[in-house]
Amino acid sequence: MNFKKSLMTLAVGSLLASSTLYAETAYVSNEKDDTISIIDLDTMAVTDTIEVGERPRGIILSKDYSKLYICASDSDTVQVMDLATNSIIKELPSGEDPEQFALHPNNRHLYVSNEDDALVTIVDTETSEVLAQIDVGVEPEGMAVSPDGTMAVNTSETTNMVHWIDTEKHELVDNTLVDQRPRHVEFSKDSKLLWASAEIGATVSVIDTATRQIIKKITFEIKGVHKDKVQPVGVKLSDDGRYAFVALGPANHVAVVNAKTYEVEDYILVGRRVWHMTFHEDQGLLLATNGISGDVSVIDVNKMKAIKTIKVGRYPWGVVVKP
């Protein structure tokens, strides 16, 4: 009951604060349903399910929130969904089996990891032109572009490296060896640090962007969960620099890491096989996709607790929020 009340307050609060009439909307890719679930974050309910290409995994929003980019892995394409009409308006050449991608701050260059081909493809989203393809390690997965726009990084799951790509020259400049099966990378807001999760290594490495050396390796331990089931995947840093949230896969928990001391402060119980996460606009809520339970956990960041579970499609993978 209490929670319902606070939700109402939240909803009312966000309505008052919002300059538009639209509520915040979450988009979730369902890997095994070939669909995107659309969630209204005021009512916390799925309002629509859109059919997209095969095996949708990574999804991101354009910087102006007008478009959703979707890695349709088995269709070997990146689809562009217009968010005014919720329809696919374009397909970008992505290289084979696109899994994750990142959009450069210029809102134009898309960096796509091609999992089957050990490549990173850079696509111009306006002209649909492939600007470059860069050879990286086996099974490229995680992609990120630094907020200052100078550096793109990719992780290769079987090669176990973080590959550093110069965004101006479109070339590989360095490699950092990390633990087994690096899945996801996330830059700090000031571009100085890179957080990289290693699913099988069960660690998150914090890497100094200037030297490209690991400065800290974070490990996790949850009571009652075998250490081998602790498999970090998604990482999300709060804008205020206080927290890093780490989704721990089959451990069914999200770790709360102090982003300054690198101490793990808490573990939040969520659904089964939690992978990727996103904040809603004021970062009071964190959404996490649970692949096996087929739902999204809504975490209250102040309480550090999951307050709601929203059923979506089969094997939800990525999640983004449009303010």
């Binding site: 050449p93 490549l119 493809t121 032109e129 393809q133 860069i134 050879d135 020259k169 070339e171």
Partner: peptide, 22 residues
Amino acid sequence: FINNHRKNAIAITLTALLGSSH
């Protein structure tokens, strides 16, 4: 054009490797 780019990219990668800081 993907193929062409790929060739360029490989050439670039190789030089980059030689210049790697590690």
